Simulated scan of single mutants.
Amino acid sequence: MRLSISITNFSWRDERQGLEEHLVSIAEAADHGGIYGLWVSDHLLQADPYGAGPGETEMLEAYTTLGYLAARTSRIRLGTLVSAVTFRPPALLVKAVTTLDVLSGGRALFGIGAGYQGEEAAAMGLPLPPVPERFDRLEETLQIALQIWTGDTSPYHGRHYTLDAPVGSPPPVSRPHPPILIGGTGEKRTLPLVARYADACHVFDIPDGGKTVRHKLAVLRALCDDLGRPYDQIEKVIATRLQPGESTASFVTRCATFADLGIDHVSVITTGPWTTEGVGTLVEAADQIVALGAAASAGPS
């Protein structure tokens, strides 16, 4: 089982250290501590679901941040959780992810979704078409990304996007391409896109005894079966929150329940900005959580 941290809040308030120093200390602690991945939110306005209070407004542009962190780390994977498909034209988004992958030595993760923040879009003048159109654009963007990453420069003609010669040079270091994670669990549009195009899905830690996660994964398995795609090719990622003051033992126990549900990767957010102490809890838990995944894969003895 893999373990990653998701940074949703950049509002560190400390007279001794600035935002950049806090961000680097978190990234370096995760990198040195063996954490698999680091995600950042792709927003222009603060969107922390567990913000500690008013005034937490700092938000960095995602791909500039990831490029900077790529230079300050050596092994941790880097991506957005997730980029709204309407924020950037497909070729620009694919180029940003590819550039991150090339300059980081193959460490990029491609997190993408249909987008949902109406207030942010209105405030900042960002496009947010109706839901059906956003999903159409999401599928076309996935098709464009895969075409570019295979080196196919033939014209692409979709309903919303036309590329006369989609050239991707240099190509990504990752082979066959940076792993694609599609955010969301909708059964009509999102999970079918996961089954067809993605390397990872993204579900949520809902306090219902695992009922929702089991259901969503069962739907995904059926969709894969219909396509003739091996279900195990798709990594199952769950988002959970590290509780304030939570112990390593408590967190490992929670991850054990995720392993029992068939989860391969735990992405962790926290209340407010991350602290080095919070990352330390994950680092202490990392080896045990990797072992949980191995035990789950082995099955009963």
Rank of each mutant, 00 (worst) to 15 (best):
E187I: 01
K188I: 10
T185H: 07
H177Q: 13
Q147E: 07
L146S: 09
A145L: 03
G168R: 15
P178T: 04
G151D: 06
E139F: 06
H177Y: 12
H160F: 14
G125H: 04
L142T: 08
P178Y: 11
Q143V: 07
E120M: 11
A121K: 10
G118L: 12
Q143S: 00
L128M: 14
Q117V: 15
G186F: 03
D164M: 00
V131L: 15
E140T: 07
Q143I: 01
Y156D: 00
T153E: 12
R137V: 02
G168T: 04
L163S: 04
A195Y: 03
Y197I: 09
L146N: 14
E119S: 15
L128V: 13
E140P: 11
E133C: 08
R137C: 02
A114M: 15
P127G: 07
E133N: 09
W149C: 00
T162S: 01
D199S: 04
Q147L: 11
V131E: 15
A121Q: 13
F110Q: 07
R159S: 12
K188H: 02
I112T: 02
Q117R: 13
G115D: 14
Y197T: 10
D164H: 10
P170L: 05
A123S: 03
A165H: 07
L191F: 02
P132N: 08
V173D: 06
I112G: 01
E119T: 13
A114H: 06
G118E: 13
G183M: 05
R134D: 11
E139P: 09
H202N: 09
L193C: 11
E140L: 02
Q147F: 11
E119V: 15
D164S: 02
P172A: 14
P127N: 04
R189C: 07
V173H: 03
A165M: 00
L128H: 15
Y161F: 08
D152S: 08
D152P: 01
E119Y: 12
T150W: 05
E187C: 04
P132K: 07
G183A: 01
T150K: 14
T185L: 00
E187T: 08
G151I: 10
I144K: 03
C201D: 03
T141Y: 06
Y156W: 06
T162E: 10
I180D: 01
H157N: 12
T190Y: 04
G168A: 15
R159G: 05
M124D: 06
P176M: 08
G168Q: 15
T185W: 01
Y116L: 10
G158K: 10
G118S: 10
P172N: 12
G115A: 07
A114G: 07
Y161E: 13
I112E: 01
A123H: 02
W149I: 08
D164V: 10
L128S: 14
F110T: 10
